[in-house]
């Protein structure tokens, strides 16, 4: 347990501090083999993000709460979790958008489909393995050019959307197919493949398309659009997957 913060709060600050209840899915296999819910009342200010509330729990109420976060500004992609039933980044959602009604609890759970290690921390290895399997690096033939590889603005625009990925796994773990079939590559790996397949400078498109043409590749996608809804960067994930499917059907990149 961490010591409680009993510093006095100024009247001006206290005026707009309200209390919200977080209902967090706790899991610690060393203590209890079953996961269970624990609620915390957290004082929040207007404009606080869910991550601020989680910090309050960890720093002032229960230091044993485990979650990942790094940059805390929606760039590193560490704190993807299931918030009120949908995958979001804790650092990007505002409390005021979650607890819209008085006394409404905010549900916080780990992302689904990856093995939970503790509380909100999951083992990301299966996710990274899928990422590596689509060869997420530039593949070229022949001699290296003496100057940079140029590309027209139109060619760059083709894969602009999929360059935004921060690998938070919100899309992959929102996918009903991925929950039941962990050998499916998942939306993120396909997004990353899309980023290289449609890059005019890259020459590994055939290779990657072959990988995604496998049984556990793009054809597993059932277009539920959970991934598109979950992506904190606003990538049109399902659209990217469909573009890969079409590239495979019509053999045209």
């Amino acid at each position: 347990m961490t010591a409680l913060d009993d510093r006095p709060v100024s009247a001006a600050d206290a005026a707009h501090v309200t209390t919200v209840t977080l209902k967090i899915r706790r899991y610690d296999p060393e203590v209890d083999p079953d996961a269970n819910w624990q609620t915390f009342d957290v004082p929040v200010e207007k404009g606080d993000r869910l991550l601020d509330a989680l910090h309050h729990v960890k720093w002032y109420q229960d230091g044993s709460l485990a979650f990942r976060r790094s940059c805390a500004h929606g760039v590193c992609g560490s704190d993807a979790m299931r918030i009120n039933g949908v995958n979001r980044l804790a650092c990007k959602v505002l409390i005021k958008d979650l607890a819209t009604k008085e006394g409404q609890e905010i549900l916080v759970e780990p992302i689904k489909g990856l093995p939970v290690e503790k509380d909100l921390i999951v083992d990301m290895e299966p996710f990274f393995e899928a990422f590596r399997s689509i060869k997420p690096f530039l593949i070229t033939d022949g001699r290296e050019p003496t100057r940079e590889r140029l590309q027209s603005a139109e060619d760059r625009a083709r894969f602009d959307d999929t360059t935004k990925c921060i690998m938070c796994a919100a899309c992959t773990t929102s996918c009903p197919v991925y929950w039941t079939d962990e050998s499916y590559f998942g939306p993120q790996a396909i997004v990353m493949a899309h980023r290289f397949i449609f890059d005019s400078r890259d020459e590994g498109a055939e290779e990657r398309l072959e990988i995604l043409n496998e049984k556990e590749g793009v054809w597993r996608c059932r277009t539920t659009f959970n991934c598109t809804d979950a992506c904190p960067r606003g990538i049109e994930v399902t659209k990217a997957i469909q573009e890969v499917k079409r590239a495979l059907i019509f053999r045209r990149v």
Binding site: P33, R82, V86, E109, T224, F225, N226
Partner: peptide, 20 residues
């Protein structure tokens, strides 16, 4: 390995329910 925490139902939208 102990069973992974199941948690609540995923709150998918139109796409997920039309698939179901």
């Amino acid at each position: 390995m102990p069973a992974a925490p199941a948690g609540t139902l995923y709150r998918g939208r139109e796409g997920m329910w039309s698939w179901v």
